[in-house]
Design a binder for these strands. Structure first.
Lengths: 168, 168
DNA sequence: CCACATAGTTAGACGTGGCTAAGTCTTGAT
DNA sequence: ATCAAGACTTAGCCACGTCTAACTATGTGG
């Protein structure tokens, strides 16, 4: 999606900081790590919409037999043309299948992504509930948090949930 | 093919609305709440950049006496023109002060925002550390998570941190 | 069979947030 | 005092994700 021009090349355009001495320790390896963190957050943002949509589509299909753009729009809190554009991107990325004026269906890839997201969402919600939060807060915060939870952190959440489930 | 998979009846257009009514009563309140959640996430995204920048600017000023665009760019992992654009928006929004070809300074509002963000960041990191995560994972995940933590959830995190600090 | 309501699409605008290329300003060495 | 290097800006590109307005398709009912 973004520019792929910064991958395997030798000339690293990012470290022109050889002359930075006094201000911030030579070569600042901390800055490097930090930059990667921000990069990861930006990457996560790019997949958020896809994840939210496939998760919702899966749920709609299960609950009512089909996923109509108008229902997606209502639940996402956006207008229909917004849904149309986003669905076009999802289709381009091979996550959904559709025909004009018809409902939306998940491809194998879309289904797989939806499964992962649903599981992760469930863990995050249960974890937050375990912290003593009310269901609504847990659900809403999970919506934002779930896309930024690394595998390690998710595992830690799961551990905590399991631990509180059998407190003995 | 999938069109038939909704419930077995061929292409009866009537059961579409029938199912809809059953599955999610008109004007469904659940969908409403959900939509608000997604809206909140979108709102959070819009403030993320501002928060990350003021936090970083505050830190740079404290550690080296000034915040130069080139250093911001390095730590954010983006190019200088990107920083320039974002700083222009920050200035427009009254969070920073600057003159051409000079370093950046926080306004009162920017300082206040930075303080809040720093505190919140600290709580989230400590909370994640308390879960048994290594520092690097905690820092990186906190970067993504912190912008999506409601006051209630932050309070719950803080409680958990305090509880584990004095384990009894 | 036609008309109307609703679902879906298209076109076009706007702001964000990345990028490169190329220009301008500042500053420190000579 | 000059001049080169590095910091900063400008201009222009692109994709995303939102919107409104207006058009088209579908299908129900008179």
């Amino acid at each position: 999606m973004e520019q792929e021009s910064r991958d395997g090349s030798s000339d690293d355009p990012q470290d022109r900081d050889a002359q930075r001495d006094v201000a911030c320790e030579p070569e600042s390896p901390a800055a490097q790590t930090r930059a990667e963190g921000f990069q990861a957050v930006r990457d996560a943002h790019r997949s958020e919409i896809a994840e939210d949509y496939v998760e919702l589509i899966q749920e709609l299909i299960e609950r009512s037999g089909e996923a109509r753009p108008v229902d997606i729009a209502e639940r996402m809190g956006v207008r229909q043309p917004t849904v149309a554009k986003n669905l076009a991107r999802l289709q381009r990325d091979g996550l959904i299948r559709r025909e004009r004026y018809r409902s939306v269906f998940l491809t194998g890839a879309g289904q797989a992504l939806a499964d992962v997201c649903r599981e992760r969402h469930k863990i995050v919600v249960e974890f937050l509930l375990g912290l003593g939060l009310d269901r609504e807060t847990a659900e809403q915060d999970a919506e934002g948090i779930e896309h930024h939870v690394s595998d390690r952190t998710l595992a830690a959440f799961e551990r905590a949930v399991k631990a509180s489930e059998r407190p003995g």
